[in-house]
Design a protein around this nucleic acid. Structure first.
Lengths: 91, 91
DNA sequence: TAAACACATCGAAACATTTAAATATTTGAA
DNA sequence: TTCAAATATTTAAATGTTTCGATGTGTTTA
């Protein structure tokens, strides 16, 4: 994972709304619907859409279309790679 | 570690210059002088000072004054706590 | 004490991010 | 095929970030 990718993931994580979204996955067994995120956050629908887009762009979330709903799955692999890079900063 | 702190650390990590600074610590045995960072990055002294400040504000670096020089030490503990929070996102 | 050095702060320009309102798109249901 | 629901995009305002030049502050050395 190169530094540009680390930067991108870090930026995706640098917002309490997006952190809250990711934390919600634990309760929901790693799978969340867009509408559930709308209920979770006190933001308008376009704002939530924007935040989800950033998490998807950083590949932390994988979108899966289900009819007119959108289901998100946590990308554990990229999270593991990111964590490995951080661990690498230590000696 | 609360979400505000996670946000702050993530934001500190969301810049390739700052990532490069942290990576340099590995080569320098976890201790860097401000002037060494100036040589490392192709940025002016005020810009480097700004980046170091963000890393210090996020507590990723601990500053130690040595006469008119400033030495930084990597804060492994806060890095570990941050990594633990990220691991916590997984189930 | 004066000059040089190391680092911080200020001010401003350029650019990016966050948010919401309005609108568009896609899909399912009647 | 028309209507309603779910999500995305556009636009614009407010705010935050990055960078540099100029300058300030504290410390060592001549």
């Amino acid at each position: 994972m190169d530094n540009k990718k680390i930067e991108k993931i870090s930026r995706a994580l640098s917002d309490t709304s997006r952190i809250a979204i990711l934390q919600e996955f634990k309760k929901k067994k790693d799978c969340l619907y867009c509408a559930e995120v709308n209920d979770l956050l006190d933001l308008t629908q376009p704002s939530v859409s924007h935040h989800l887009k950033q998490l998807v762009d950083a590949e932390l979330l994988l979108p899966k279309k289900e009819g007119r709903n959108l289901k998100y799955v946590l990308n554990q692999q990229i999270l593991n790679e990111y964590i490995a890079c951080l661990n690498d900063l230590k000696d």
